[in-house]
């Protein structure tokens, strides 16, 4: 299935206007927020529809594997600020809504989505956002969709912002306080802290990366392989759990098991409830999932 207009029509038809339904992507984070309670599974269109390097945007079917998209983009020296497990789809990663570890450089995942072609709970197709890199026309539905676990609308096709791939990337690690590492660097792409050691990802012009690495060597940091992080996630509460690694500035702790979901104030829950009911009054989209039942 390619992601052209005909496939979007087919996707709309698959979603239909009645019965519990969900989109299955790569299934790599299928249990996030709870399973979809036996909802009928449909697939989103697959394939790159339009890639214009001079425009720095790409239109792609939500069912496309993120690795396939990345493989095509890198040929043009481009990337998208998204990361997912092996096999994850573009739509799945957007719906789970976790920002990439390199968010300090590439921005949050919400900054990536420019336009989304969706099918609503009533079976009607609609478009959120717009195709340009700058746009304040109407309400920002795209941001609302990112991280919504498919509970507001089902996304079939998207336009994403692309970015140039950095010329050089270098991980360093050493026993230094993360604050000192931050003070010695300019906009590092990622800073990790395991309670003893700080790892930092430097990206950019080769000479700038080398110059910064030289400064960090004085703090005892040396080049290393990209870190392998524990599989679970929790939210930073000011204390690092045993074996945990803090993604400094992101609020995320990589740890052995997922932490519990954070407490959500009643007023926010009520607003979220109104939002879900407004988009899906009959509760047919991903009925068992709750975006508030997610650790981080």
């Amino acid at each position: 299935m390619s992601a052209g207009d005909a496939c979007m029509v087919a996707f709309q038809s698959d979603v239909g206007d009645s019965g519990a339904v969900c989109v299955r992507g790569g299934g790599t984070r299928w249990e996030v927020g709870g399973g979809p309670d036996g909802a009928r599974e449909v697939s989103a269109p697959v394939g790159i529809v339009a890639l214009d390097p001079a425009e720095m945007t790409v239109m792609v079917g939500a069912g496309t594997a993120l690795s396939d998209l990345a493989g095509e983009l890198v040929i043009h020296g481009l990337e998208v600020g998204m990361k997912g497990p092996s096999g994850a789809t573009v739509g799945g990663v957007l719906m789970v809504g976790r920002s990439a570890m390199r968010r300090r450089r590439v921005g949050t995942i919400a900054d990536v989505l420019l336009q989304a072609d969706c099918v609503g709970a009533d079976g009607v197709a609609f478009t959120a956002g717009g195709p340009t890199v700058k746009n304040v026309t109407g309400y920002d539905l795209c941001r609302l969709l990112v991280g919504s676990l498919g509970t507001l609308a089902l996304v079939g096709r998207v336009i994403l912002r692309t970015r140039p791939v950095p010329a050089r990337s270098l991980w360093l690690v050493g026993e230094a306080e993360p604050e000192r590492v931050l003070d010695a660097t300019y906009r590092p792409s990622c800073v990790l802290w395991d309670g003893v050691r700080t790892s930092v990802l430097l990206e950019g012009h080769g000479e700038d990366v080398d110059e910064t690495a030289g400064r960090l060597a004085l703090l005892g940091l040396t080049a290393t392989e990209p870190p392998v992080l524990p599989p679970g996630r929790g939210r930073w509460t000011g204390r690092l759990p045993s074996g945990g690694v803090l993604e400094v500035g992101s609020g995320v702790v990589h740890q052995a098991d997922d932490g519990g979901p954070p407490t959500v104030p009643d007023g926010v829950r009520r607003l979220a409830g109104r939002m879900r009911a407004s988009f899906d009054p009959s509760g047919r989209l991903n009925p068992g999932r709750d975006p508030y039942r997610v650790a981080a």
Binding site: V136, L144, R235, W236, S250, M275, V294
Partner: peptide, 15 residues
């Protein structure tokens, strides 16, 4: 710090 808990209602509100 970090991605929104649940819906990005902040992102919806801005603008």
């Amino acid at each position: 710090e970090g991605d929104s808990v649940g819906y990005d209602l902040r992102g919806a509100f801005v603008g």
